[in-house]
Amino acid sequence: MTLLKAGPYSVRVNHRSLIVGVVLLVLLVAALLVTLSAGTNAFPMDRVVAAVFGSGTPAENLIIGELRLPRAVVAALVGIAFGVSGGIFQSITRNPLGSPDVVGFGIGASTGALVVLLILKGSLAATSIGAVVGGAVTAAIVFALSSRGGVAPLRLVLVGIGLGAALNSLNSLLIVRAQVYDAQSASAWLVGNLVGRDWDEARLVGGILVAGFVLCLVLHRPLSLSEFSDERSASFGLSTDRTRLLAVGTGVLLASGAVAVAGPIQFIALTAPQVTKRLTGAPGPNLVVSGLTGALLLVLADLAAREAFQPRQLPVGVLTGLVGGAYLAWLLGREWRKGRA
């Protein structure tokens, strides 16, 4: 344990988590630089740095500064949002499957966005609001259905998976009923994509991340205590239901914000906290490292989706779906064996 102090603020941090966090940050910056330089039009690093600061040639400024940079920044921010959100949900459900994309909050956010996109024909901003509202409504329903004199974590996961399945068919219904052109763009959106994302999107997720960060500062200690049984955490003066409500609210805000700009990219929220746990070997919730892991995963996935299949670009959601799906199967198998052992 390392004690971090800043003025009146003092917090204890796991030693290895701190090192892992710094290493991830360095890797993230490196991955971002590679993303900016690599491609059909490859640039050397010094040109990349010049273009980032706006002092490149017009072509460099356009390709690096205006096309690649905002997309890479959005990828990193969305990755952080998914990673932190996943960390929060896995902490409160005490379950590696308790991630917003499995538990239906991500699907609910998509439903909200689709309603705005297909029925109300709203703008990007309106779609984002739709996603956040959709996620929040889903969370409220899951909470109501799974609370019987307190919210039991496992019940939350199971109810969430069930509701997610129902919402998935609602999403299909919305698409089937839409005009062909709208339906096509909605289906593409549902895969999760970062192509063409710009500074508007970056500002939107950035804003949500700032709010999420403040909430996480409040949440961190209650969350780490609530990983014990409800009785034990209550005996230390924690109000478990209030903690869960605030945590779900924060997690849904972050996940919905990410879904709003990038579509429901699968499995980042599921994988990031698990990778974090293996890297740090520390107990949860470890939200900072989880966010950094999510960012690194998504930036690398988007780089691969952009460049590995040239001349075509894959939506990044297809790639994370493939890799993450395999990972989910492995995880389920392991949990099942653990349950039987």
Binding site: M1, P8, Y9, V11, N14, R221, F228, G237, P283, G284
Partner: peptide, 26 residues
């Protein structure tokens, strides 16, 4: 039930919760 991978020192330390505040976490 205890969080996965938690050390004894960390577990005992979490018992200080009622004495801590948002700013003064340790």
């Amino acid at each position: 039930s205890a969080p996965e991978a938690i050390s004894v020192a960390d577990l005992v330390a979490r018992g200080r919760y009622p004495h801590q505040s948002l700013l003064r976490q340790w």
